[in-house]
Simulated assay, not measured.
Amino acid sequence: MTTPHKDEFGNPVGHPVENWQGCEMPPRSDMVGDHVIVSPLDVARDAKQLFDANTTAKDGGRFTYLPTRAFEDLASYKIWLDGMTSTNDPMLHAIIDKATNKAVGVAAFMRIDPANGVMEIGNINYAPALSQTIGGTEAMYLMMKRAFDELGYRRYEWKCDDQNAPSRAAAARYGFTYEGTFRNAIVYKGRNRDTAWFSITDTEWPAIRAAFEAWMSPDNFDETGRQRKRLQDLRK
């Protein structure tokens, strides 16, 4: 157990953060990986590709835990995207498959707090073409790398509906630590949401980054593309 820091009055306090001056807002520039490009969303460029990619799903179940329902037509989807891209927070990104050069998912930096070095990843929606792919994992890695390595953020958050088992599992797989559930946190779609909170801190990031990079290595996949080691096992 570490000895707590104390102030001049002998009261226990948090450890010092030397020379802290805050962080910058994320830039509106591409994050380029081997499989995907995570790019600030351009409605004219991305809307139709994203809409078409989502229509390949068998139903609208991917939107169950998102703030909106599945969009019935491209026009309504564009209106929503126009609103989402009109400000810097949330900062919505398209995830573009390098093999096809098509947008197949979205994710946003949001609740960005440069003064304290905290941001959240949210509004994640992967179309079937991106789900359970190396590129889908790489997209999360690239966004974390921007937050921690490029910008020096101290805390990176993931929040989801407590009932959203796939999202909770994804957070655990990516290395987020569960911190607790905020009860009666939100009312959306006419129902209550208890919100599960997860985070990664800057001190945890180096080990998590190493696991991502080991998992994405070509050596970790056999001739059929099957992984040899799971991402979560590489952190042990």
Rank of each mutant, 00 (worst) to 15 (best):
I96E: 01
T85S: 05
F9V: 00
A103N: 06
G14R: 13
T201E: 01
M91N: 06
D30N: 07
F182G: 00
W158G: 10
G105R: 02
A115D: 13
F51N: 08
P218W: 04
D222L: 09
T64Y: 12
N164Q: 11
R235G: 13
D222C: 10
E120D: 13
D233Y: 10
Y77F: 15
V36N: 00
A94D: 07
A207I: 04
E179I: 02
E120W: 02
D233V: 11
N220D: 05
L231Y: 09
D89K: 07
A214T: 15
G10L: 08
E18H: 14
M84P: 01
G61L: 08
K229A: 14
W20D: 11
T133K: 01
D82K: 02
P26H: 08
K98W: 02
G175Y: 02
G152T: 13
E8M: 11
T87Y: 07
A214R: 15
V38A: 09
G22H: 09
I200L: 03
L66R: 05
P67C: 00
F221T: 06
Y156M: 10
M143Q: 13
N164R: 11
R28Y: 04
D202F: 00
R168E: 06
W215D: 03
A165E: 15
F148S: 10
T177E: 11
M140S: 12
E204D: 10
Y77Q: 14
V43T: 00
N123P: 00
V118R: 14
T56K: 13
T56N: 06
D219R: 09
R230Q: 15
I200C: 04
E72L: 14
N54C: 12
N220P: 07
T64S: 10
K48D: 14
D162W: 04
D194W: 05
S76Y: 00
T133G: 03
N164M: 09
I208K: 01
G122E: 09
G117C: 08
N11A: 13
D73L: 07
I37P: 00
S199L: 00
L41S: 01
M84F: 01
R69H: 13
A165G: 07
P90E: 03
D161A: 12
A57R: 09
Y153D: 11
R209P: 03
F9S: 13
Y141W: 12
I112G: 05
I95V: 14
N192T: 04
N54F: 15
Y141Q: 06
F148P: 11
N88P: 00
W20V: 11
Q132V: 03
V13S: 07
S199R: 00
S39I: 04
T2C: 00
Y156F: 15
K48E: 15
N88L: 12
K236Y: 06
S217W: 04
R209D: 08
A210P: 01
T2G: 00
M91E: 11
D162H: 14
R45M: 04
T177S: 14
D46R: 01
A103I: 04
Y156V: 09
A108T: 01
M84K: 04
K145M: 10
A185E: 11
Q163M: 15
S86L: 05
A75R: 08
